[in-house]
Amino acid sequence: MSPRIYSLHHFIKASILFGFAMYIVHLVRTDNILFYIAPRMVDYVKWSAVAFYAIAVYQVYQAIRAFFGSAAACDCDHDHTPSSSLLKNTVIYGLFFFPLLLGFLLPDTSMGSSLAAKKGMNLSSSSNVKKEASSTAPSAPVPNPAAPSSGGAASSNGSGTTGSAAAPGAAVTPGDSAGKTAPSSSGNQDAMFPSDRFTEHYAKYAKELYKSGVIPVKENMYIETLTTLDLYLDQFIGKKLELTGFVYRQEDMKDNQFVVGRFSIQCCSADASPFGVLVEYDRAKNFADDSWVTVTGTIQKTKFNDMDIMLLKVEKVAKAEPAKTQYVYPNIDFGT
């Protein structure tokens, strides 16, 4: 291979590396990088741009040496000379140029209803927690330390909950007390929010939420709040809830129903999962799919696809601007 052709290959490699470095810089400067990765990963991606830049500079150096015929020969007993086939080289370099070109040409947008439909909207945020708890649950019920030693099975007859601790998410509501003021004694609270080693931090958070007149679903506690409410759904029936998200619908929903949802990301958009709350509102048709709303309503319980889920009877709906960071992320400090 002639020195000039060999040098051209090095320049092509350098241009690809420079391109990816510049694309990362573009995403960081516009904050659009948060459409693709979680904030805690941004610093690592920034450092990768520095690495791309450094390797690109080295490729330029190699290209200059090859152009003047002074490239050092490799002594590893392998031939590193690029293929002389134009078709093969076009395909190989195209695998890098094509996604880079798409990145610069296509608009950066957040995930919405179309992807939620493909992934499936999660309306029961606590399913994974319940699976972990049930997989290690003892064969016999664990006595509730707040209950009398002679107590029997858990009951909800309006006079308070007694007996054995129920599994998380079980109906341990003390009668129709949901929506009233929080119990004053820690013993009553422990009876209302039973827990095990998997759910003890959710039970603690549930006691805090129960005291709120209107429970806000905050950005930094989105998944944790929905999971807590789902775990202890019966205890929160009648309480007020406020949350913001995009409108999502699927075919088997009623005309007055839609989901207020958000995408949760652990690391990057590849692991995104949609979570949301089913709401009922008489004028639901006024809100288009993927529009953003803030809803306030009363927590109820319903069945959807043979599964008990939370239902929000909406009292107030307001159009909302999409959040700057449209995704939500696990709170790494929760439970510590």
Rank of each mutant, 00 (worst) to 15 (best):
S2A: 00
R4T: 00
L8E: 00
I16N: 00
L17M: 01
F20T: 01
A21H: 01
M22A: 04
F35Y: 14
I37K: 08
I37R: 07
A38Y: 05
Y44S: 15
A49W: 08
A51D: 11
F52H: 15
A54H: 09
A56V: 09
Y61V: 13
A71N: 05
D75Q: 08
H80K: 12
T81W: 08
P82N: 10
P82Q: 10
S84N: 11
L86Y: 13
F97Q: 09
F97Y: 14
L102M: 11
G103Q: 03
L106K: 07
P107T: 01
G112V: 01
K118D: 06
M121F: 08
S124L: 06
S125N: 07
K130P: 03
E132P: 06
S134W: 03
T136S: 12
P138G: 03
V142F: 03
V142E: 09
P143M: 09
A146D: 11
A147Y: 10
G152R: 02
A153W: 04
T162P: 01
T162H: 07
G163C: 08
A165T: 04
A171H: 12
T173P: 06
P174D: 09
A182M: 07
A182K: 08
P183M: 02
S185N: 05
R197I: 03
F198M: 08
T199N: 01
K204I: 04
Y210E: 10
Y210K: 15
G213T: 13
P216D: 06
V217D: 06
I223L: 15
E224S: 09
T225K: 08
T227V: 05
D230M: 06
L233N: 07
D234E: 07
F236M: 05
G245N: 07
F246P: 04
V247P: 05
Q250G: 06
Q250A: 10
K254H: 09
F258I: 12
F258L: 11
V259P: 09
V259I: 15
R262P: 03
S264R: 14
C267L: 14
C268Q: 11
F275Q: 14
V277A: 14
V277L: 15
D282M: 13
R283S: 15
R283F: 15
A284F: 02
A284R: 06
F287T: 15
A288V: 11
D289P: 09
T294R: 14
T294E: 12
G297D: 06
G297Y: 03
T298D: 13
K303Q: 13
K303P: 05
I309V: 13
L311F: 07
L311R: 14
V314G: 02
E315D: 14
E321N: 11
Y327P: 04
V328W: 03
P330V: 04
T336I: 03
